[in-house]
Design a protein around this nucleic acid. Sequence first.
DNA 1: GCCAACGTTGGC
DNA 2: GCCAACGTTGGC
Length: 141
Amino acid sequence: MNYWLVKSEPDKYGWHHFVEQGRAIWDGVRNYQARNNLNAMRVGDQVLFYHSVTNPGVVGLAKVVKEAYPDPTAANELNAPSTRWVVVELEPVLALPAPVTLSRIKAEPLLANVALIKQSRLSVMPIRPDEFEMILKLGQD
DNA sequence: GCCAACGTTGGC
DNA sequence: GCCAACGTTGGC
């Protein structure tokens, strides 16, 4: 079991929209490091859903339901999906009772090394098990 | 709206 | 291969 965090701007694709749809094709990733992380996801892995830009923070938990395949929104010269970029499919699991804001994450010593803080622009990143547990715990109250 | 961080592009 | 210019992301 691996743990991840994905970012989305709530004005573009927020948690609410995700829950309404019931399933998301996580497309549009155009960064190699983020792409490599998508490729490493396995069915059943747990994924923290983070809102960036507007009220930044972790708002919910999702799970991987389909592993990486070519991104249909990334066409190559032959107008076929490029194999360079990939998508995964995610389903919502639960909304956190209390969103864990970025400022709260920054204030927690055990979360001082999360990629979210170290690499602020990365949109798909791994989360250590202890970090994952801490964020879920903070989201309970 | 501003700005820092950082990835990409293109000239040389 | 280096580096300046530029575009994008994301926090504030």
